[in-house]
Write a protein that binds this DNA or RNA. Sequence first.
DNA 1: GCATATCGCTTGCACAATGCAAGTTAATTG
DNA 2: CAATTAACTTGCATTGTGCAAGCGATATGC
Lengths: 141, 141
Amino acid sequence: MKEKTSSSLRSGCPINVLLETLGDTWSLLIVRDLMFFGRSTYNEFLNAGEGIATNILSDRLQKLEAANLIEKRRDPADARKFIYRLTARGIDLAPMLVEMILWSARNEQTDAPKETIKAMAADRDGFVAKVRENWQAARDS
Amino acid sequence: MKEKTSSSLRSGCPINVLLETLGDTWSLLIVRDLMFFGRSTYNEFLNAGEGIATNILSDRLQKLEAANLIEKRRDPADARKFIYRLTARGIDLAPMLVEMILWSARNEQTDAPKETIKAMAADRDGFVAKVRENWQAARDS
DNA sequence: GCATATCGCTTGCACAATGCAAGTTAATTG
DNA sequence: CAATTAACTTGCATTGTGCAAGCGATATGC
């Protein structure tokens, strides 16, 4: 596994810093699955629809965990499974993901339900707040 | 050069749609340079600090142009140069980039000036509006 | 007006990342 | 207790990346 030490950073530009961890085609899809679709296990990510390969998924989960964006624990109900969930740093990506969704909805053809987009666009901060609440509630339970 | 036809999409999820065009480590750095740093030529992108390779830069500029996020024209003052600029679709990425910057500022060590971040965080929509105005003004001139 | 420098690339090659299929181990279900 | 499931790992072919060098067109200096 490759290390990502702070000294290996290409620059300290905030956009670059984020991209060095999340700048690929798969990592943010995993975050999306965790944040919006309630997916939390390896097989759920694997069957998300975009067709990620098993080795790539494994690699990205490790990197996201190393970056402290997700955390991994055994499923108490089934010891074969692991449950992944977003950390505070991870859920804090919600505003960015919302803007990504809204950009695509404005500029591309997508299969996102119009009503959801409308609600999201009308009150972005409220939408993010709800996502945060759900995340918090799931943790407390 | 490889085509990105609509049929080749892994899914119609809005996040995925955006990532299929911009989901790599370099493309958004070019957008950043255009949006925030006034860089607009090949050599300016090349010397941006992160050290992109010449062939990769060339490839990404072509892909961004093909995706209608940037456009290319000759420099009227120097026929050796090309001037790249953001399209309407491109400048519309501003809210997302602002959220990326704010996430990094909240969660990582960056070299972004604190005052700029403060202003950005206090009035994100106002900041985005200013970015848009600057872009519009540069086009009209 | 001619040599030299600059700009925006392209090419070749070594190395790293990705995608696919198959195999592995531990835990669970029937 | 045999078959299945979950979460991976491994091997290998293909693709992408990074670096150095080269190239054609335009501009600059003398």
